[in-house]
Amino acid sequence: MAEMNLKLIKKGAEAELYRGQWLGYDAIFKRRVRKEYRNADLDAYIRGSRTSLEAKLLAQARKLGVPTPVVLFVDLRNYEIIMNHIPGISVKKLIDTLDVPSVKSLFSTIGEMVGRLHLGGLVHGDLTTSNILVFNNSVFFIDFGLGEYTSELEARGVDIHLMRRALESSHHAVSKVAYTSFIDGYKGIMKEMGKEILIRVDEIRRRGRYVEGER
């Protein structure tokens, strides 16, 4: 693709994000870059499989009623996804500006959305506050690069566990309130199944190294 006037807006861990026009759309170009340090075979495998899976998951999530950027084009030769730009602000940046009731309502919504993903048979795989944007009073989920199609208890549990870890490491002051609201929203969607998953979340936590109640 010959793109004009692409502007680098973020150098992420595995991809570079550019912003530019694509057939008249305000678009984000997510390009998984070659890692010089990685074996070429391993590198091509990781970039290829994550690019194609991410594109599918982004589209599938929308069908489940979870806002995500619209995928406009996938270029597997260049390990690139072109999607529409969401002019929102990340929850990571937003959270510090919110009062407690707003944190509660935001995280309850986030929990609900994660519930919809899980109920629909997919997991995000990298639930952090950097990967959720707020725009127009809606939460948008981005970066499904570590996502999967799965209804396994374990994968769902890991998703919830990661959100908890992200809150504890980056947003210590509000982590308890945010996590409780997140779980409330999540359980509202998952109903009975939610209980079993939350038991697994605690198990995953205990499986961690040196934590309270470790086996």
């Binding site: 074996n39 075979d41 391993l42 990781i46 952090t128 570590l146 870890r165 992200a166």
Partner: peptide
């Protein structure tokens, strides 16, 4: 020769 082995990154 590189042989594929389990590459397991779960979130962080």
């Amino acid at each position: 020769i590189f042989i594929p082995l389990p590459y397991v990154v779960k979130g962080q």
